[in-house]
C-alpha cells in the first residue's frame, strides 16, 4: 500500500541515488535511504541503548554505594555476604576478587567470534550459498549457546560463593545487568534457530538477505553491549 512517507526511489540528489546504492533488499525505502525494516531495527536498537545505559548506570551506582557501606563496616551490608568474601572485598577495596577474568575473557572471545560467523552467514545468504549459510548460522547459534552456558556456570559459581540475587544492592544490580544481556543473547539464539529452520526448508534465499541482516544487527548489538559490560563490570575495578 502506498504511503506518503515511503518512496520507491530516492530523490535524484540523495546520496543513494548518486551512487545507485540504497542498502535495501526488497523492502520499501524511506526518505532516509534505508528500508523501513532496517530503520525500525535501528530505532529498536536505539531504545535498547537506553535500557542497557540505565542498567549499566544502575550497576555502577549500586556497586559504589555497596562498597562505601561495606568499607564503612555497616553491619546491614556486611551481614549479606559470607565472612571470607567480605574480607577479600575489603582487602582489595573492590569486588574484583569475585571475578574469574580468564574465564570471562574466553566467553568474550566466543561472543566476538559469533559476530564474525554472523556476518559470514549474511554474506553467504546474499550470494545464495546455501551450505555456507547453514554452516555459519549454525556456528553462530552454537557460539551463542556456549556463551550462555558459560554465563550459567558463572552465575552458579557466584551463588555458591554467597552472592545471591537478593543478598544486597551489588548482587541485584550485577545479576539484573548480566541477566538481561543473557536473555537478549538467548532471544538472538531463537532468531538464529528460526533462520536455520528456514534455510533447511529452502526458504532462505538472497531475496531474504535483509532478514538475515536484521537478525545480524540485533546479534552484533548484543555483542557490542558485552564489549561495554566486559570492560566496565569486569576489568575496571
Amino acid at each position: 500500500m502506498a504511503d506518503a512517507a515511503v518512496i520507491d526511489t530516492p530523490p535524484a540528489d540523495s546520496p543513494g541515488a548518486a551512487d545507485g546504492s540504497h542498502g535495501d533488499h526488497g523492502g520499501h525505502r524511506t526518505s532516509l535511504g534505508l528500508s523501513n525494516m532496517k530503520l525500525a531495527m535501528w530505532l529498536f536498537l536505539g531504545s535498547e541503548c537506553l535500557l542497557f545505559g540505565a542498567l549499566i548506570s544502575t550497576y555502577l551506582l549500586s556497586k559504589s554505594r555497596f562498597m562505601i557501606e561495606l568499607l564503612a563496616g555497616n553491619p546491614k551490608v556486611v551481614s549479606t555476604l559470607p565472612e571470607g568474601l567480605v574480607e577479600e572485598f575489603i582487602e582489595a577495596g573492590s569486588v574484583e576478587p569475585m571475578w574469574d577474568i580468564p574465564f570471562t575473557s574466553g566467553s568474550s572471545f566466543i561472543l566476538l567470534m559469533s559476530s564474525l560467523t554472523m556476518v559470514l552467514a549474511h554474506k553467504a545468504v546474499s550470494e545464495d550459498d546455501e551450505l555456507q549459510t547453514k554452516v555459519w548460522l549454525a556456528a553462530t547459534a552454537l557460539l551463542g549457546s556456549t556463551f550462555i552456558a558459560g554465563q550459567v556456570y558463572e552465575f552458579t559459581a557466584f551463588f555458591r560463593e554467597g552472592l545471591s540475587y537478593d543478598a544486597n544492592l551489588f548482587g541485584t544490580a550485577f545479576y539484573t545487568l548480566t541477566g538481561f544481556h543473557g536473555a537478549h543473547v538467548s532471544g538472538g539464539i531463537l532468531m538464529l534457530m528460526s533462520l536455520l529452520y528456514m534455510a533447511f526448508r529452502g526458504k532462505l534465499k538472497s531475496d531474504r538477505a535483509e532478514t538475515v541482516e536484521l537478525v545480524g544487527l540485533y546479534w552484533h548489538f548484543v555483542d557490542v553491549v558485552w564489549v561495554l559490560i566486559f570492560t566496565i563490570v569486569y576489568l575496571i575495578p
Binding site: 545507485g20 540504497h22 535495501d24 533488499h25 556476518v119 559470514l120 554474506k123 538477505a209
Partner: peptide, 22 residues
C-alpha cells in the same frame, strides 16, 4: 537514479566489507 535502483541489491553489497576485511 530510477534505472540504477533496479540493481541496488548487488550495489549495496559492493559497499559492505569483503570476507577478508571481516
Amino acid at each position: 537514479a530510477v534505472a540504477e535502483s533496479s540493481h541496488d541489491t548487488h550495489d549495496d553489497h559492493a559497499h559492505h566489507p569483503t570476507e577478508r576485511q571481516y
